[in-house]
Simulated assay, not measured.
Amino acid sequence: MEQNLSLYKIFYTVAKTGNISHAAKELYISQPAISKSISKLEDNLKVTLFIRNSRGVHLTEEGQLLYEHVKQAFDSITIGEESIKKITSLGIGQIRIGVSTTLCKYILLPYLKEFVEAYPHIKITIHCQSTFHTIKMLENNQIDIGLIGKPSNEKNITFHPVMEIEDIFVATKQYLKNLELREEHSSESIDDLVQVKGEPYPLKEAEIFKKANLMLLDEENITRVYINEYFNTHQIETNQILEINTMELLIEFAKIGLGVACVIKEFVLEDLISDRITEIPLSTPIGKRAVGFAYSRSTYLSPSMRSFIDYFKINQIASEE
């Protein structure tokens, strides 16, 4: 078939123009070369494709049948070329993004709003799932880019940090007071714990984690892995754990006084300021971690992807200034 492609191009041009000399001019080859190619194609197919006369050539019945199929093929190629030109000139394209529900709400959506306004012709597809699944989809080329917490192994991933986030433990003051009363401690001491910042309270901290209803993201979430490592490193004992699969529910459950929740500080600043929840001081704060856009090193960076990455970098520089 590959050897016949040039023959079909010549056949198509001759059939379209109805004249060998016109086809030769359009293809920038000699008339004898045109005639030789037509003869070769006829020999390959073992049919006569053209009838020659003084005014030019016209298709035989077999030639007309072949022309209809060849014309459809070349029309499809032309449409493909025009589509590519349109994509290039107008910036039309598609980007598949993987992101957790939490990062989508608090980080991706504000960024996407401005990007879509700047590039309205680019189609955006959002796949919401855990960071673990997002990384797997990147590896399997099922998405183009992901917004994730910085992975421990960046061997096959290019990572562009967006911001740092800090994990903290929060609860309502009433819940902490009730917890203290249940353990037959004074409510005054727990007030000191939740109101004073920067003071070490290792004993009370240990009691809170051991006795409280501790609300954490489930094991499918990379944040849970990070918190489990913190507990193991500092030998923190926990007994009552309620697993929840979204950060939004963790925050809401904490606000209604259901327990102590591990949340991302940057996402609950308004609730902390309004005193709906309070941060529990830790003797050893949990280290901050980076969140950013990641894509496979083997991924082809389409014009749409390059626009997305460049737009992010430009806006990040502007925000830092």
Rank of each mutant, 00 (worst) to 15 (best):
M1L: 03
E2H: 11
S6H: 14
S6V: 12
I10L: 15
F11C: 10
V14P: 12
A15P: 13
K16Y: 10
S21Y: 01
S30N: 01
Q31A: 07
Q31C: 08
P32F: 03
A33H: 14
S35D: 00
I38M: 04
S39T: 13
L41D: 04
N44A: 01
L45H: 08
L45R: 13
K46W: 02
L49A: 01
R52A: 05
V57Q: 05
H58G: 11
L59P: 07
T60D: 02
E62S: 13
Q64Y: 11
Y67L: 10
Y67G: 08
V70G: 09
Q72A: 15
Q72H: 12
F74C: 09
G80H: 14
I84H: 07
I84L: 04
I84Y: 00
K85W: 06
K85F: 09
K85L: 09
K86D: 06
I87E: 00
I87T: 03
T88F: 06
S89T: 10
S89L: 09
I92C: 11
I95F: 01
S100N: 03
T101K: 11
T102E: 07
L103T: 08
L109C: 08
P110V: 03
P110Y: 06
L112G: 09
P120G: 11
P120W: 07
P120N: 07
H121L: 15
I122Y: 07
I122E: 00
H127G: 10
H127I: 08
Q129R: 14
T134V: 04
M137H: 01
E139H: 14
N140D: 02
N140C: 04
I143G: 03
I143Y: 03
I145W: 09
P151G: 03
P151V: 02
N156D: 06
F159I: 00
V162P: 07
M163E: 10
E166H: 11
F169D: 00
V170Y: 13
A171N: 08
Y175Q: 08
K177P: 13
E180Q: 14
L181M: 09
E183W: 13
H185E: 02
S186Q: 14
S189Q: 07
D192F: 15
V194E: 02
V194S: 02
E199F: 15
P200N: 06
Y201F: 15
F209Y: 14
N221K: 14
I222S: 11
Y230E: 01
F231G: 03
T233G: 06
I236T: 00
E237M: 08
T238N: 00
E243S: 10
I244V: 15
T246D: 07
M247R: 12
E248Y: 13
I251L: 05
I251V: 03
F253K: 14
K255F: 01
L258W: 12
V260Q: 01
V260C: 01
V260P: 12
C262Y: 03
C262A: 02
I264S: 05
F267W: 05
V268Y: 04
T278V: 11
E279K: 14
E279T: 11
L282K: 02
L282N: 04
S283E: 00
T284Q: 05
G287R: 14
K288S: 01
A290S: 15
G292V: 02
F293R: 07
M305C: 05
I309E: 09
Y311I: 03
Y311A: 00
K313W: 06
E320I: 07
E320Y: 11
E321C: 01
